[in-house]
Design a protein around this nucleic acid. Structure first.
Lengths: 168, 168
DNA sequence: TGGTATATTCAAAACGATTTGAACATGACG
DNA sequence: CGTCATGTTCAAATCGTTTTGAATATACCA
């Protein structure tokens, strides 16, 4: 029995499981939540091996998961003197972490959609398509405008939501 | 060639595709975005058959997709006199639609996480576990508190984000 | 430098979510 | 009532994503 796997109190196990479901439902995969939750409730830094044993995941998953979480600033690498292993502990600056994740995920999606919209506008505007029902043309123009307006609204609302967590 | 499939201008096709990717990336599935976008840029109400032909999706997908979208208030059923078919048109009250979707999806997730947290607190608090490192115990308590505090912060921020779109 | 402990990579397997379509249900009309 | 047109359901197939683990790379130490 490894130090990591003994004595994870059952309520903590439940929280780890819940965190896994949570990140899964957000499309981030189960392991990210599990790894973070495990480290979050563990007082001392832990190694990749600890993670594979405690959570029953593969070395590969642990390695990739840890890297991703570190990139978001959710984990802090810790060097323990005289030990080759990489140790990690969970950081608890949720605001910053969340912001990084949102930027990484949602930001790109909004941007991609904005681009698609702009391209469509350009493709339609300059070429009042030959042989196409002008009523339909006008309708589409109007819908594009409504959509564009909403897009702006979203982006500003999104901005203030994200900014609300930048504060320390 | 059906009325629905002829003459979808290529920029609109692109937007339909983009909408599909968008909803896919949000974990809603590709078809929802496609169906909505197609109807959004179509002046007249359309039937399930039109959808299957225009988008190349199965009858089943069209049926389920339309139902889901209607449930969110994104589509409006239209009855055309003397025609048995169900017709649908896209509504453009994005604010309300978004709110419904968020409530349906994110709300449940936050709630589930909140419950898991509460249960863990109850499980730990009343039973200062026998034979477990008291330092560890204190650490866990403290982390639970931090987490709980953030959870409140999120819920209130989320609330105001959602409310921002209730208007009109 | 060679040997060992550890971390990373990535092709393939496992898994889960989405989509299909045949079977079934519904309901309009003669 | 029987038929035809349409909508719905859900088990099975498909498809994409996540996870695995053997192979490979890296880094430390003697």
């Amino acid at each position: 029995m490894t130090p990591a796997s003994r004595d994870i109190p059952s309520p903590i196990r439940s929280l780890i499981e819940a965190a896994g479901h949570f990140t899964q439902s957000l499309g981030l995969g189960r392991v990210l939540g599990q790894i973070y939750a495990f480290l979050y409730f563990t007082p001392h830094p832990r190694t990749l091996d600890d993670l594979t044993h405690a959570l029953g995941i593969s070395k590969g998953s642990a390695s990739m998961g840890v890297r991703q979480l570190a990139q978001w600033g959710a984990l802090e690498p810790v060097w323990v003197k005289g030990d080759r292993k990489d140790y990690y502990r969970a950081r608890d600056n949720f605001g910053r972490i969340l912001k990084n994740i949102l930027q990484d995920m949602a930001g790109k999606r909004l941007e991609a959609s904005a681009m698609a919209l702009t391209e469509a506008e350009h493709a339609i505007h300059p070429h009042p398509s030959p042989g196409i029902d002008p009523d339909s043309e006008a309708f589409i123009q109007q819908r594009l405008e409504t959509l564009r307006a909403f897009q702006h609204k979203i982006q500003s609302a999104w901005g203030s939501f994200a900014v609300g967590f930048l504060s320390k």
